[in-house]
Amino acid sequence: MKNFLFVLRHSPHSGSGIRESLDMLMTVAAFDQPVKLLFLDEGVFLLKSGQCPPNPAMRPTAPLFAALEIYDIEGLWVEQESLSERGLSLADLILPAQTLGRADIASFLAAADIVVAC
């Protein structure tokens, strides 16, 4: 048993990377390993409500995160500064998340056995 932490730092439509990272995350969850998600920098936009991707080739990614509820994910954390620097608050997000101050990120990362930067 190992604690996995996925760190998501890219905006929703910056490529197929998000979709592939979520595949990894779901595989880890399917192996009954504890999984946490941390949203940093542009990654906070992944959880923003009201996304309307104009390009039909880029399927919306927000529903993928909404579907995480059926997996046994330990929780979602969002860096407070990443939110406020982009004029966002927890009320703008599609899923319940906990905030974490920038000063606490290092110890949060250190507490995980496996950190997967996405």
């Binding site: 190992k2 595989t27 192996f31 390993q33 496996i114 997967v116 930067a117």
Partner: peptide
């Protein structure tokens, strides 16, 4: 498949990612 990746992560002492 990704199962192989998870399995290796679980067995390894260290897991490293290259090329962000």
């Amino acid at each position: 498949g990704l199962g192989l990746w998870v399995d290796a992560c679980l067995k390894a002492d260290r897991f490293l990612i290259f090329g962000a």
